[in-house]
Structures are given as structure tokens and as C-alpha cells.
Design a protein around this nucleic acid. Structure first.
Length: 101
DNA sequence: GTCGTGACTAGCC
DNA sequence: CGGCTAGCCACGA
């Protein structure tokens, strides 16, 4: 019995390295396309610990958005996976965007 | 059962 | 282009 929160975390695990997703996509994959806010909550609370790549989640416009441990930290992690960040936004966001199908 | 909160988004000025 | 408001959802107390 996975809560909405649990689904979000599971979806994050599906994201391959070097790719990113949006809160809207997560919410949609979780079953509630309008729950983008709740999706952010799931990561923010992040009951799973750093085992979940919550840093691979960005805003719908490709912006980094935020990060519980600091947006700066999030950028560093993304760059470590090969994703470039410019002015707090993902470079080639559309190309890096991952689909859950 | 009700209220408050949040890593959001879209629209309007 | 920048800032503000309103609407939406799920979870915790």
C-alpha cells in the first residue's frame, strides 16, 4: 500500500543517471497530474534518505526549483551526472527530460 | 474532521 | 521582464 509519497520516490528511482524530470511529470505518473505540489512534498520530506535521486527533479520550466539541503547542492549533484546548470536552470532541459511512460 | 504547510504551476498586472 | 495572486494536491498535527 504505497502512499502518493511512496509512488513519487519509486518513480525517482526509475530516472536514469544524466536525466531529469519535472514535478508535474511525477504527479502525473503517480496518478494525479494536478498533485505537482504534493509531489514536491514527497521529495522534501524524503522519508527514504539520499537513496532517492530527488535532485533529478526540476520545475516544469526547467528551473532547478529548490532542494531541502540547498539548491547549490542540487546543482552540484546534477553536474556530477553530466547535467549542466545555467543561472539555476537545466541546460537542454527538454533533452534531459525523462519520461515515465 | 479541520487547519496549516510546501522543493509547484498558470494567469494577470 | 518581474512580481503577485489564486488554485491545486497530499500529508502531518
Amino acid at each position: 500500500m504505497k502512499s502518493f509519497n511512496g509512488k513519487i520516490l519509486a518513480l525517482l528511482l526509475q530516472i536514469p543517471r544524466g536525466k531529469v524530470t519535472t514535478y508535474t511529470a511525477l504527479a502525473r505518473a503517480a496518478g494525479s497530474p494536478k498533485a505537482y505540489r504534493a509531489a514536491g512534498n514527497a521529495c522534501n520530506k524524503n522519508p527514504n534518505s539520499p537513496q532517492v535521486p530527488c535532485h533529478r527533479v526540476v520545475s516544469s520550466n526547467g528551473k532547478i526549483g529548490g532542494y531541502a539541503r540547498g539548491t547549490k547542492r542540487k546543482i552540484e549533484l546534477l553536474e556530477g551526472e553530466g547535467i549542466k546548470i545555467s543561472e539555476g536552470k537545466v541546460v537542454d532541459f527538454e533533452k534531459r527530460l525523462f519520461s515515465f511512460e
